[in-house]
Amino acid sequence: MAPKPKEKPKPSQSQASKPVIAVEDLFTTLNRHIQRSEYEQAVKVAEQVLSIVSNDEDAIRCKIVALIKADSIDEALSTIESSRRLPIDFSFFKAYCFYRQNKLNEALASLEGQEGSSAAMLLQSQILFRLGKLDASLDIYQKLQKSKIESLEINLIAGLLSAGRASEVQGVMEAL
């Protein structure tokens, strides 16, 4: 899709209200791309918002998430890196990107300080699994069992089998 040509504000019109309208239009377009899973286009529209309002948190978040969903992990990381001066915490996204690049220790380091959230716990467990720290990985899944996370049992059972704890699988299945 060709980017929407930006209208130059006419001198007679209010200079202040024009960008607001443009940004609202862009967010409407951005939302449509997200709904349709058109992530490359979503990145472009988020960038158009950022060309008007360079620090817009929603636009930066949308750009990073769209890049991740478009499998552009390197670009997602460089966007996170260039947003470092902003007071927005992107450490979970950063950790996830490092995980996708198999930079597991960097990923773990980025997760430090947010152990509370279930998203961070899931990612931490997946990183530990790849590092071969199976028991630590399983401990997290067992803590998360109460949170009713969809498909969690798949990873829990995979972990038990990999850790040579197949005898526990039956019990876990029955407890589900």
Partner: peptide
């Protein structure tokens, strides 16, 4: 055994 990327599912747009 299959391991899913469950963390991916938590990444969502604002």
């Amino acid at each position: 055994p299959i391991v899913l990327d469950l963390a991916y599912n938590t990444i969502d747009f604002p």
